[in-house]
């Protein structure tokens, strides 16, 4: 079950995204974007609201690792790798706690996809990168602080 789907009716633009995609002929039976894009959550500037929308942070878990640099020299490109060793991991959500728009991405995993995603995210300032994991219907979380150096000497 898709976590964000619960909020789909609140997200006015979400249905729009799907219809645009359909109109573009993209949605074939094999590649349905089941998770309609949840505008309400992605456009929210309220970290607390985002956290509750994704199902709450849940318990802190040592079985989740958030790999990211201690110091990012370029806040526009911060490599993040999340591994969840919790059995039955269904979703991984990435949140930038101090980003203007905290919700960064949600990955729903199925058919053998492991609890692992690696991507690169934007961070405006020094903050936690938080991973929220849904596994077996329960929520878990872990975070790592990334220092973002702004300005810099360029040297």
């Amino acid at each position: 079950m898709n976590i964000l789907r619960r909020n789909v009716l609140k997200g006015a633009g979400a249905a729009g995204a799907v219809s645009v995609a359909m109109a573009a002929g993209l949605l074939t039976p094999g590649a349905v974007f089941a998770a309609e894009w949840n505008k309400a959550v992605f456009d929210s500037k309220d970290l607390g609201g985002v956290m509750s929308a994704v199902g709450g942070a849940g318990a802190a878990a040592g079985d989740i690792s958030v790999k990211a640099p201690d110091i990012a020299e370029n806040g526009a490109v911060v490599p993040v790798e999340i591994t969840s060793n919790i059995a039955g991991t269904e979703s991984i959500i990435i949140i930038g706690e101090k980003n203007t728009l905290p919700m960064i991405a949600q990955f729903d995993l199925s058919n053998g996809a492991q609890g692992f995603v690696s991507t690169r995210i934007k961070m405006g300032t020094t903050a936690n990168v938080r991973a929220v994991v849904k596994a077996g219907g329960k929520m878990y979380t872990a975070a790592k602080e990334v220092k973002v150096t702004i300005g810099g000497c360029g040297g």
């Binding site: 590649a31 911060v78 991405a105 990955f107 729903d108 995993l109 991507t119 934007k122």
Partner: peptide, 16 residues
Amino acid sequence: KVLDAQWGGGISKNPY
């Protein structure tokens, strides 16, 4: 289907 993701603008340019 193995992956179904939703992204915001917080993913870096030219995503990996």
